[in-house]
Structure formats: structure tokens, C-alpha cells
């Protein structure tokens, strides 16, 4: 039996648990600080390699992952640093991966586009647009078959909505009622192509409706709104209610990749509009207005986060490079003798 499409409540109330608020703030700022540090390391030429920055979109990863358990699954995209951090991947090992070091999450083999840590449910970032979604679907199927109550999240961009694979997954998730949450980060662009050119509907989430997948359209720069939508979707998924599709309207502050000048294809006015709705600043204003977290506490968290990121850089720089002989290790799983 398929559920009929219903809109989720999008009324964003601020969670009243200070521990949740502290977690949110810490991770919003940790992603921002980590990414800005990566920018400076790229600018100074210390780091190399393809890098897609998550700055601006932090509220999506934090709002969604804030509602997940450690053993829930996440499949990411090429723009995956934020998802990794929010899911609990150690930033020192992430930084070491960007440095191509043996201590990196992927032992230097994956780099920015493939950071993974399965011990915290991060199944990996992927450079093939749309390809994370069926992987998340498979994890949800696996959770259902193993009767574990785990849920899976597929993060993907507006650009991935061009790929048929996403719709194939919507269909399968619906007919099998899988514990899968589709999170579409609509940041208005796929590379230089604006969403209104590439896609025929303005609200992308409405496309889930015909598949009988409930959907919500969320201000993705409002971490509380994302959290509320994720809350409803996770509850439904965990209790056999099937998939949900959440479209988060958001914006990436930098270019498509480090080095891309976004003003080639978008305007400064548009950038200023979205920067004016910055998720971190709005969080700070909201909690100050309600007297929930003291300014001093926010500052303390900010300072801790800066130290965490500096520690990550020190860890990466002190780490050894992989042995060149590892170029063809890990290709296959070592065979056990009893075949």
C-alpha cells in the first residue's frame, strides 16, 4: 500500500534542548570553519585536487544529520565535506585525506570527492552525479531486510534531478516502503547551469508526489526548519512509514569547485540576497532572541571549533604519505584461505 503525498509540517520551532542546540551550533560552525580553512590552504597552494565547498549549505547537513543515529546511513555527493562532518567523521582524518596522507579516512586513495567513514554510517561521497541515491536506497533495503530500524539518507543536488536514476529510486522506495529520506539540496545551480533552465518545475519536491512519496519544501538556510522536516521523515521511516522527499532551498557561497568564479553565471545581488540569510547568523539571532544559549557559550564553541580545525591541520601535516606500493592495494578484499 502506498501512502498518498502529504506535506510535512514545516513550521520551524526551535528545539528546547540546549544539548541539541549546542550540537547544531558546533557542527554548523565546524563545517564553515573547516571549509574556510580548506579555502586558505588551497589559496596558499598547500593543498591541491578537486574540491567542492559546502559553505552556505551547512544547515542542510546539520539539520538532517542532527536527527540521525550513529548507525543510520548517509550517501553523499561530490560536495560532501558537510555531510561527513555532520555525520560525525573525524575532521583530522578528513583533513589528512585532503592532504593525501596515509592517516586520511580513505588512506589517501579517495580525496575530497570520496571521503567515507563507514564506522559512523557515512557510506561515501561520490563524484558521479546521482549515483549516491541508489546506494542509499540499497542501504535502506538492507536495513529493512535485516530488520534493524536504521534509516538511510540520500543527499543530492538539484542537478541530480536531471538524472533518471533519482526517479527510479523514488519509485522503488515507494513500492517497497523503504526507510529512505531523499534530501535534495537545491542550491540553484549545477555547475554554471541554473535550475530554472535545466528543470521544468520550480519546486523540485513536487516531483515526488506522483510517486506517492510524501514531500516537503524547506528553507534550507534555516537549520530548525530542516531539523523539523528531518524529524518527521526519520520518525516515519523508522516506524515502517516509508520514504520522504525533502527539498532544501539553499545556496553555495563559493563557485562550483575551488577556483570557479561564480560571477561568470550569477549576479552579486543574488549572492548578497542569500548571504543575507546566512544559516549561522540566523541561528545566533534566534537563540539570542529566545535567551537559549548565552553569547559567551557561542563564543566558547566557536573557539573550540577553531582549535579543532587547527589541530586537524597539524595532524595532517605531521602524518606520513602513503607508501607508493599502495597504488594497487585495496583493489580486492584479501581472500580467506578456506575457499
Amino acid at each position: 500500500m502506498a501512502t498518498s503525498p502529504v506535506e510535512l509540517p514545516t513550521q520551524a520551532s526551535i528545539p528546547d534542548d540546549p544539548a541539541v542546540l549546542r550540537w547544531m551550533y558546533r557542527h554548523l560552525v565546524l563545517i564553515r570553519t573547516f571549509e574556510e580553512r580548506v579555502v586558505s590552504l588551497r589559496q596558499s597552494g598547500v593543498l591541491q585536487g578537486s574540491t567542492h565547498l559546502y559553505v552556505g549549505q551547512e544547515a542542510v547537513a546539520v539539520g538532517v544529520c542532527g536527527r540521525l543515529e550513529r548507525d543510520d546511513y548517509v550517501a553523499s555527493t561530490h560536495r560532501g565535506h558537510g555531510h561527513c562532518i555532520a555525520k560525525g567523521v573525524d575532521v583530522s582524518r578528513m583533513m589528512a585525506e585532503l592532504y593525501g596522507r596515509a592517516t586520511g579516512t580513505n588512506r589517501g586513495k579517495g580525496g575530497s570527492m570520496h571521503i567515507a567513514d563507514t564506522s559512523v554510517g557515512m557510506l561515501g561521497a561520490t563524484g558521479i552525479v546521482g549515483s549516491g541515491t541508489p546506494v542509499a536506497l540499497g542501504a535502506a533495503l538492507s536495513a529493512k531486510l535485516r530488520r534493524t530500524q536504521q534509516v538511510a539518507v540520500a543527499f543530492f543536488g538539484d542537478g541530480a534531478m536531471g538524472q533518471g536514476i533519482v526517479y527510479e529510486c523514488l519509485n522503488m522506495a515507494a513500492i517497497w516502503q523503504l526507510p529512505l529520506i531523499f534530501v535534495c539540496e537545491n542550491n540553484r545551480y549545477a555547475e554554471s547551469t541554473p535550475v530554472e533552465y535545466a528543470l521544468s518545475t520550480r519546486d523540485l519536491a513536487t516531483r515526488a508526489g506522483p510517486f506517492n512519496v510524501p514531500f516537503a519544501i524547506i528553507d534550507g538556510q534555516d537549520v530548525f526548519a530542516v531539523y523539523a522536516a528531518a524529524d518527521a521523515a526519520v520518525e516515519r521511516a523508522r516506524h515502517g512509514g516509508g520514504p520522504t522527499f525533502i527539498e532544501c532551498k539553499t545556496y553555495r557561497y563559493y563557485g562550483h569547485f575551488f577556483g570557479d568564479d561564480p560571477l561568470r553565471y550569477r549576479t552579486r545581488e543574488e549572492e548578497e540576497h542569500y548571504r543575507g540569510r546566512d544559516c549561522i547568523r540566523r541561528f545566533e539571532q534566534a537563540v539570542a532572541g529566545q535567551g537559549l544559549l548565552a553569547q559567551a557559550e557561542l563564543e566558547r564553541i566557536g573557539a573550540e571549533v577553531r582549535e579543532t580545525v587547527e589541530q586537524a591541520v597539524r595532524f595532517a601535516e605531521a602524518s606520513p604519505l602513503p607508501d607508493p606500493g599502495e597504488v594497487d592495494t585495496d583493489v580486492y578484499t584479501p581472500q580467506r584461505l578456506e575457499v
Binding site: V46, L47, Q48, G49, S50, L98, Y99, G100, G108, K109, G110, G111, M113, H114, T126, G127, I128, L321
Partner: peptide
């Protein structure tokens, strides 16, 4: 073909 020591190239899928 990025030179060591720091970072690297575009990895497996690119």
C-alpha cells in the same frame, strides 16, 4: 598528475 606531497588529483571517478 599532481606533485606530492600535499593533496592530489581528481581520484578514481575523474
Amino acid at each position: 598528475g599532481m606533485a606530492p606531497p600535499n593533496g592530489g588529483g581528481s581520484a578514481a571517478q575523474h
